[in-house]
């Protein structure tokens, strides 16, 4: 009984963190969608991240709930609510944000320790950006046959992507993730927990550092993210095949589409009848 109750309490706390992070980070992504991106030469000054919000909360509370809350918040508020949903490719962002925030949250044992908080914030942000960069490079590698064979291509891809990464990391990372997190975590520590009816993080409530299990989980997550993004953009190499198809037999195309249409309508009609029948049976 006691154990069950303890578990309920901790589940409720996780839900609280999830709701809190989702609402706050979601709101902030609504704004980042709207803040313009400044471009000075090749350097893009983009205010991409309010990532400090989930980073801060992950360092103070349960990292997993905060990480999932942040990713969900972004998905719901800025992608779905504003209708900017980009399909499967969003999964990449979802997973990389989750991993980055989660790792950062796991790293901090004592939120009062500035050094630790700073390192964790940079690691989390860096990880998230790095994963994005790797996926980007893989995309090019996938899209271009004989990637290695084209003279200068690998170098230029690595150079531009690497530069973009460094730029984001140094600009967004320090300005929008490191500094605010360093400012917020010690300030909120001990203040925000009682509002949620929780104990501040200490040796007892700390989950333990990043271990092999965490790393393996993250690697799997990253693989899924990369796969999703690659599938989402793999339209490119298929275009050739498509074009041939469209030219060849018009009649076949029309027939196919008409058949598909008919099928959809018939299936829908059957479903409707079935559901009506079910309702009547009841």
């Amino acid at each position: 009984m006691e154990a069950v109750r303890k578990q309920t309490a901790s589940q409720s706390q996780k839900l609280m963190i999830f709701v809190l992070t989702m609402a706050l980070y979601g709101l902030s992504t609504l704004f980042t969608e709207l803040i313009p991106h400044y471009q000075v030469g090749v350097v893009e000054f983009s205010v991409e991240y309010f990532l400090f919000i989930p980073l801060t909360l992950a360092m103070l509370f349960d990292p997993m709930s905060a990480a999932l809350g942040a990713a969900t918040g972004e998905l719901v508020f800025s992608e779905i609510m504003l209708g900017q949903f980009g399909g499967l490719g969003e999964l990449e962002k979802f997973l990389t944000v989750t991993i980055g925030v989660y790792i950062a949250g796991r790293m901090v044992k004592n939120p009062r320790n500035y050094k630790m908080v700073g390192i964790a914030a940079l690691t989390g942000t860096g990880l998230q950006l790095l994963m994005g960069t790797v996926v980007d490079i893989m995309k090019v590698q996938f899209a271009v046959e004989d990637f290695e064979a084209v003279a200068g291509l690998p170098e230029s891809v690595f150079a531009t992507e690497g530069f973009a990464f460094l730029n984001d990391f140094l600009f967004s990372g320090i300005l929008f993730c490191l500094l605010p997190t360093l400012f917020l975590v010690p300030k909120l520590y001990g203040k925000i927990e009682p509002l949620l009816g929780m104990r501040p993080r200490d040796g007892k409530t700390y989950l333990g550092g990043v271990n092999a299990k965490v790393v393996i989980g993250c690697v799997i997550g990253f693989a899924a993210a990369a796969a999703a993004e690659l599938i989402a953009t793999s339209g490119m190499p298929l275009i050739d095949w498509e074009a041939g198809w469209a030219e060849s037999s018009t009649a076949l195309a029309v027939g196919l589409i008409a058949a598909a249409a008919l099928a959809v309508i018939v299936i829908a009609a059957i479903r409707m009848k079935a559901s009506k029948g079910q309702a009547e049976a009841k």
């Binding site: 809190l20 609402a23 706050l24 902030s28 309010f50 400090f52 919000i53 801060t56 909360l57 605010p180 400012f183 917020l184 300030k187 909120l188 203040k191 925000i192 509002l195």
Partner: peptide, 8 residues
């Protein structure tokens, strides 16, 4: 976001 976090 500091006050907003606490209020939320």
């Amino acid at each position: 976001f500091y006050p907003l976090m606490l209020n939320t």
